[in-house]
Design a protein around this nucleic acid. Structure first.
Lengths: 232, 232
DNA sequence: GAGCTGACAAAGTTAAGAATTGTTAAGAAT
DNA sequence: ATTCTTAACAATTCTTAACTTTGTCAGCTC
């Protein structure tokens, strides 16, 4: 579980972020001024630092500069809106990313994940020989336009629906695990009460039709889904 | 690809500019004092010089004066804010433009492009094999003049609209992230309440036409935009 | 052992709520 | 005077919540 240090003098914002990060399975710690922030960052066991530029005691850029002299822990800077100079300076000093205030918690999470991903070059979704088109029976996908049609008629899928179908069809004939599918398509793992994927699945199936007995997407309970490959 | 010489004693700013220029497909070189700057400018193969007025060894105006005695390479001066006198002097001495500090990188890029445009009035410019022109289906871009046409008819795009279209077309067939697009085109990252890009997008789409079902630019919700590449 | 039953967890469904993006027009900024 | 941004509202897409259905398994009965 990733430890995250938040350095920002706005205690309220800090708490909010901490709460949100917790709900996303991070372990946040809040510090309200630059000096002690730097201290904690250097001596603590953190995986990432979120650093506001405007700070009492010691300005965020200074903190970053000092921190960089002894550590290369990932840092995401929070900058005032439109403060282009600070933003660029920050990146130059070695910040891994920056986020203009005000930002949505969601955006922050996305950035954090992006930083970690960048740092851990996993081979997750490689290997795609990126075939621009996929066609099985009367369903045809065009990845270049992210559009799908059935017997020549557009299905009007949303982005998520298309992604689901794409993943399943790419693995037609083999089972795609639920969690894997969720990660690829929604960008997160499912919690026990997250029905989002089910809803998309339902909507997708509805659009695909095939109510007449022969299903296209079969559920493998406890495991995942299977795009039925009609051998021919 | 245009070679650009940056002469400024602020090494940090220099590096920043260089980085930014690189990302915009220029080839920057940094020099930190007037004397060697002049030397490089005269002997090097540069297409444009960015010259700070305040310099050690040899003041920027002197550099310009000397440079002009042997070359008419375009020069953009960087001046302290409100320093009207220097500005006028600079222009008098043959600078092509000037930019008061502090400035946004984006502003600088705009000036650079403007200078080149001014200098290359409808010249062949075919040397830009890099990507002077982009054409997909019936949409044609000319980056030198920053003009776009559809089936031979000018679309009358604004600078931002053109930039958006250019970025998307350069990556036709793959998704361009919203934030990335915003950074390249607006010079900033979007906050959750910044609708500017959306508005430009809307206006651009309107000018592009294609209301008849087949859209050119597709939205990938939560990710970005995709210029549809209709291979043929 | 075959068949039934209740309990429980996994997946499906529906509708309401939230978030993201689109659009229009007015206000700011070159 | 044009271009960009902001603001307000609309439309679309995604997520949440509450509830239903289905599948699986343990224990029971015969």
């Amino acid at each position: 579980m990733k430890q995250i240090l938040i350095i920002d003098d706005d205690t309220e914002l800090c708490e909010l972020l901490a709460e949100y990060l917790s709900s996303e399975k991070f372990e946040p710690t809040c510090v309200y001024d630059g000096k002690s922030g730097l201290d904690r960052a250097i001596n603590g066991q953190f995986d990432l630092v979120i650093l506001d530029i405007m700070l009492p005691e010691m300005n965020g850029l200074e903190v970053l500069k000092n921190l960089r002299s002894s550590s290369n822990i990932p840092v995401i800077m929070l900058t005032a809106r439109g403060d282009e100079v600070d933003r660029i300076l920050g990146l130059e000093l070695g910040a891994d990313d920056y986020l203009p205030k005000p930002f949505s918690p969601r955006e922050l999470i996305a950035r954090i994940r992006a930083v970690f991903r960048r740092l851990t070059p996993s081979q997750d979704d490689s290997g795609d020989k990126d075939s621009g088109r996929i066609k099985i029976a009367d369903i045809k996908l065009e990845t270049a336009t992210r559009s799908a049609e059935k017997s020549g008629v557009s299905l009007g899928l949303t982005e998520v629906e298309f992604s689901i179908l794409e993943q399943l069809m790419r693995s037609a004939g083999t089972i795609v695990e639920r969690q894997l599918l969720a990660e690829k398509v929604l960008g997160r793992r499912l919690t026990y009460d997250d029905r989002s994927l089910d809803v998309h699945m339902s909507n997708l199936r509805k659009k695909l039709g095939y109510s007449n007995g022969n299903e296209l997407i079969r559920t493998i309970r406890g495991t995942g889904y299977l795009y039925v490959k009609t051998e021919k």
